[in-house]
């Protein structure tokens, strides 16, 4: 039983006709950072809410450290810490007061509560700002306070729902460092994100989730190896030469080569093996730039679903169609 810290089995949630989460099953092992990677609306938050006992699943079951989310929600709540996507701290109170209330809600009193509040705030680097009202905090500080509030009771399992959403690069990296630190302490962390860099940087294993379903699972390396080889971009000074170059590369090297404007895009097994002969072939051509793109999770997602991870800008007709198709079924 203790093989999985978090175990989901066919977890399903319907909202009316919409299936937000569709038979999701996975197992996050103790001490592992397990990431749900997918675009907005993929069902990541709904999954976390079910695991955190905030939502009743329509079907399926899940266990946190062996406790059933359906039958033992009280034990589950003691075991987990949740950093929800939305900010939850009371901004009329200070950071200290927020964390202290949290410690008391978990049953610690007097000195023990204060000790835990101090430890959590110190760990998140907020002790200096602890006695200021939360309304004066920056975005990064508020996120860190959310994590501090979720840590006071030393949970073994931590749910982080888009923890760096809307943060600048510096605050994001800071938070990543702290999450790595928590991992070293042996916590099991379930991290949802739609930033593929975040999943790559932090996760031991990634489940790619789309339209409520897990479409692939594995370590970032395993997932990336699904994409064959690498991509070489050759940028030419004269766009008129792109067609001819693409044809001759395909013929001579037996690779996929495609002209795109002033650039020829070449798909190869390994850039290390192909580059020497490629360079020999193109010597004398007016090439202004050679760029090698290693596969990343963004491309894995594209390959699996035909779409990009981040599509939040504007109305997306394709996505809308897929959603409505899903509703009809």
């Amino acid at each position: 039983m203790e093989e999985c810290s978090i175990k989901a089995k066919n977890l399903t949630k319907r909202f009316g006709q919409l299936i937000a989460v569709n038979r999701v099953s996975f197992c996050a092992r103790p001490g592992e950072v397990y990431s749900l990677l997918g675009p907005n609306g993929a069902g990541k938050t709904t999954t976390i809410k079910m695991l955190a006992t905030l939502l009743q699943p329509t079907a399926g079951e899940a266990w946190i450290k062996g406790y059933s989310i359906l039958r033992e929600p009280h034990h589950v709540r003691r075991t987990i810490g949740l950093v929800p996507q939305d900010l939850t701290a009371d901004d009329e109170l200070t950071g200290w007061e927020n964390v202290l209330i949290q410690a008391r809600l978990y049953g610690y009193s007097g000195n023990e509560a204060e000790k835990r509040a101090r430890e959590a705030l110190e760990f998140m680097g907020l002790m200096e700002a602890a006695h200021r009202k939360v309304s004066t905090y920056s975005g990064g500080m508020r996120r860190r306070l959310e994590v501090a509030m979720s840590l006071v009771h030393s949970p073994e399992v931590l749910f982080l729902d888009e923890p760096t959403l809307g943060l600048d690069v510096q605050s994001r990296r800071h938070l990543w460092g702290l999450i790595e630190e928590l991992k070293k302490q042996g916590k099991t962390i379930l991290l949802t994100t739609h930033y593929m860099e975040e999943a790559e940087a932090l996760a031991d294993r990634v489940a790619i989730i789309d339209l409520g379903k897990i479409v692939a699972e594995g370590s970032p390396e395993e997932l990336k190896s699904r994409i064959k080889g690498e991509v070489i971009h050759l940028k030419l000074r004269d766009p008129g030469l792109a067609n001819g170059l693409a044809e001759s590369l395909a013929r001579e090297l037996g690779v996929e080569a495609e002209p795109k404007g002033d650039t020829v895009v070449v798909r190869v097994q390994s850039s290390g093996e192909t580059l020497p002969s490629l360079i020999r072939l193109v010597s004398g051509m007016p090439i202004v730039e050679i760029r090698i793109v290693k596969p990343n999770l963004e491309e894995v997602f594209l390959e699996l679903t035909g779409r990009r991870l981040r599509e939040e800008e504007g109305f997306d007709v394709f996505r809308f169609r897929v959603m409505s198709r899903r509703v009809r079924r």
Binding site: R77, I80, P84, D86, T88, A89, D91, Q102
Partner: peptide
């Protein structure tokens, strides 16, 4: 609306 209720509901009170 400000999310504090989520915080309360996820705690074992």
């Amino acid at each position: 609306r400000l999310g504090y209720m989520t915080r309360l509901l996820v705690s074992p009170i």
